[in-house]
């Protein structure tokens, strides 16, 4: 947030500044295209929603106000109210924490399990490599949503279970990527030199192979974050995530669906928020990709 603000104020001062300063600012502006800046702004806002929702709204997300049912969006209720008189904007703000923690758990799980499998497969090689990569093939052969549903049947409904279900579908992708990166780095000269100068297997893996393999893994993690938000909202919509009255975004849309002919704002607003967050996450991940390549 703060860096964005300083950049913006510096750009604002651009007209009065000297030419050398202008050149530097132009470079800065080029480095941060407006779409990317907006994406960071959206993500930062949503993270703040998750951390301190009370700063953004004074309404209660769970308890409704009598007599204020199904109000259209106006100055008092920015995005209108639902059938119980609850402020929709407040519900979306308070819902951020559910969607974001869900996405973090999912990506974290996929990242840790997948990368561990991939690094083991890539660095140990031979039999174990074959075995792990066959398991990955199997995970890839089951359509992701069906795999999530199978895990949900096993674990039961709930925010964390939905997040685990989504996270396990990304294990295969992370494992493949991490393995190919490790194999690529392993063949490079400096890793061979590290082995040649007496480095143990574990030390070389930790000091050279891991740090150099992880950059592209992180870029993909940002991409998976967007799709995890999407998948978690889908599971929430189907009713397998957090139970009502949790204001999880997918559940908000599912509840708003009952008033589709009278209260258009109930389904429209939460959906737009999901789309914006996913677009922003994808844009940010793209910029990571450019840096690494």
């Amino acid at each position: 947030m703060t860096t964005l603000d300083t950049i913006r104020s510096e750009i604002g001062a651009d007209g009065r500044a000297g030419s050398s300063r202008r050149a530097r600012l132009a470079r800065l502006a080029r480095r941060l295209p407006p779409g990317l800046a907006l994406s960071w702004l959206i993500l930062a806002t949503v993270f703040l929603w998750a951390i301190a929702p009370a700063l953004f709204t004074s309404y209660n997300p769970v308890e409704g106000v009598g007599g204020a049912q199904l109000k259209r969006p106006d100055a008092l209720h920015l995005l209108g109210t639902d059938a119980l008189g609850r402020d929709l904007y407040a519900r979306i703000v308070y819902g951020a924490v559910h969607s974001l923690t869900g996405a973090f758990v999912a990506v974290g799980l996929g990242l840790i399990v997948g990368t561990t499998l991939g690094v083991i497969a890539g660095s140990v090689g031979r039999r174990l490599d074959d075995a792990i990569m066959r398991i990955v093939d199997v995970l890839l052969s089951i359509p992701p949503l069906l795999l999530s549903l199978s895990i949900i049947i096993l674990l039961g409904f709930g925010t964390v279970n939905a997040a685990i279900a989504v996270g396990l579908t990304s294990v295969a992708g992370f494992a493949r990527l991490a393995r190919s990166e490790v194999v690529r780095v392993r063949r490079s000269d400096y890793v061979e030199a590290a082995f040649g100068s007496g480095g143990t297997f574990r030390a070389v893996l930790w000091r050279h192979v891991l740090p150099n393999s992880l950059t592209s893994v992180i870029a993909i993690a940002a991409l998976h974050f967007g799709s995890a938000v999407l998948q978690i909202s889908t599971l929430g919509f189907l009713g397998y995530g957090a139970p009502p009255p949790t204001p999880e975004w997918g559940l908000l849309i599912a509840e708003g669906r009952n008033y589709i002919s009278t209260a258009w704002w109930l389904t429209t607003a939460p959906g737009f928020v999901v789309v914006l967050v996913v677009l922003a996450a994808n844009r940010v991940s793209q910029s990571f990709g450019k840096v690494t390549s």
Binding site: T267, T268, V274, V275
Partner: peptide, 11 residues
């Protein structure tokens, strides 16, 4: 890719 399919249907 960023649009939730279920939301698209409802919209």
């Amino acid at each position: 890719i960023s649009i939730p399919t279920f939301w698209l249907g409802i919209m």
